[in-house]
Amino acid sequence: MAELILQALYSGLLNGGVYALMAIGLALSFGTMRVINLAHGELVLLAAYMAYVVESRLDLSPLAAIPLAMAVACAGSALVYLLVARIRKNRELNSLMLSFAIGIIITNAVLLIWSGDIHSTGSVSLQEAVQLGSLYSMRSELYGFLASLVLVTLLWQWLAKSWYGRAVRAVSSQRDAAKLMGINPAKTELISFLVAGLLAGCAGVALYSSSVIQPSLGHALTVKAFIITVLAGVGSVPGVLAASVLLGITEALTVTLWSSAVQELAGMLLFLLVLFVLPNGLFGAARRRA
């Protein structure tokens, strides 16, 4: 039993890495524009289907699809931004509905183009078992986790050090003041959506190489990314990583100890608990989410 639990902790940790890629993108675009992109999970799914197309049509490794997946997710994310930016009236509610509509469009477009079947990678080398001590994983899971660690670190450094990264943080905390300091808020918002798209592209490829995809998955991915941002609280990159790992581990433990059908329930219960007990999230600065 102890071995099974240890194995669940390990798998959860690896899964959490991929979740972090999705959640940071969502948190970034929410931070700058105060808009939750409800189509974010669908963009990740679209990127995953790009990996499927590259593998099944061109007979290449899904990893070769990374540039295409990134480009598609970026273009989608930019499109969401440009459309949402057109909304003048009652932006908070209308942008939710607009991005929800875009999510419906993407899900059904995927359904129309690639049908409702489930797909997963056929690559033998990616699915090969890798042993670490007494713990096992697929090679793709390990790759995904390492890639996400690198990307999250890069993003953290970018936000902390680079001019645009600092502009993103400035716009998140005080849009008007940032404008007075010579930052172009519209451009900064677009950049945050583009970065979110890049991360979503990587997350999609990682998702396809380590698990199964189907059209209705996008919705669940958005919810997962959102649960993580609530767990993490606003404004902390390491917090998002930790919350992602927490969600991954909770899900893996639920599957091991209970059943895979109730995996989503575990995340929700965690989410409710945090909402009730720590409304600012586990790692968020102590301020009201307004």
């Binding site: 409800l38 509610l93 919810v223 059908a261 109730v262 989503e264 009730f276």
Partner: peptide, 28 residues
């Protein structure tokens, strides 16, 4: 109810998640 204390997007996403949960519960 806990989601009501939060602003719009949080409520919207919380309720999105609830719909999924209830479907899983009804199946399980």
């Amino acid at each position: 109810l806990p989601a009501l204390r939060l602003s719009g997007p949080y409520f919207a996403l919380a309720i999105l998640a609830y719909a999924q949960i209830f479907r899983i519960l009804a199946t399980e």
